[in-house]
Simulated assay, not measured.
Amino acid sequence: MVNQRLRLAPHQEGGEMDKRHNDPADAFRWTFASFNVLRRKAARKVVVTPSGRLRDPGPPPAATPAPDPTSSAAE
């Protein structure tokens, strides 16, 4: 984390990431994201096991919207 931003990279990338990011001959670049950006995009934690299996709990349950008080459903 740098300046309240996460440095993200594709899971298949490896090596000395800082050197690779700064090397103009290397196509690798960090993706930077702040916590607020991740929250707005509804990012969630997933886990990739050492054997390569993805564990994704799925999105959180959607909040039930409050009923519209101007609705005429009660008629």
Rank of each mutant, 00 (worst) to 15 (best):
P60N: 03
Q4S: 13
V48Q: 09
A73T: 12
E75G: 10
K45S: 09
K19D: 11
V47W: 13
M17L: 15
N36T: 09
H21Y: 11
A25H: 04
R44W: 10
P24F: 06
S51N: 10
P69F: 09
D23Q: 11
E75S: 13
V37F: 09
D56I: 04
R7A: 04
P57V: 02
A42M: 12
G52F: 01
P67H: 06
E16K: 14
R40P: 02
D68Q: 04
N36Y: 08
F28Q: 00
F35V: 11
L38C: 03
A43T: 01
R53S: 06
K41H: 07
K19H: 10
F35I: 15
W30K: 00
P67L: 06
T70H: 08
V37I: 12
D56C: 03
S71R: 00
P24A: 12
D56E: 04
P69E: 03
S34W: 03
M17P: 00
F32A: 08
P10F: 05
N3R: 13
T49P: 02
R55N: 09
R7S: 05
V48T: 13
L6A: 07
D18A: 07
P59K: 06
N36F: 10
R7W: 01
K41I: 05
L6K: 02
K45D: 08
V2N: 06
A43M: 10
L6D: 07
V37Q: 15
G58I: 09
R53I: 04
L8I: 01
D18P: 04
L38N: 02
Q4R: 08
P61L: 14
T49A: 11
A74T: 06
Q4F: 10
D56K: 03
P65K: 01
K19V: 11
A33Y: 00
A43H: 09
D18H: 15
K45G: 02
T70S: 14
M1L: 11
T31V: 14
D18T: 08
R53A: 03
A62M: 12
G14W: 12
H11C: 07
V37W: 05
P50W: 04
T31F: 04
R7N: 01
K19N: 10
T31P: 02
P24K: 08
D56H: 05
F32I: 01
T49K: 11
P67W: 01
A42D: 10
A42Y: 12
A42S: 13
S71C: 03
R29E: 04
M17I: 10
P67K: 02
A43N: 02
A62Q: 14
M1R: 12
N36P: 03
F28Y: 05
D68G: 02
V48W: 00
Q12F: 15
D68C: 09
K45Q: 14
T64V: 14
A27F: 13
Q12E: 14
A43P: 01
A63R: 15
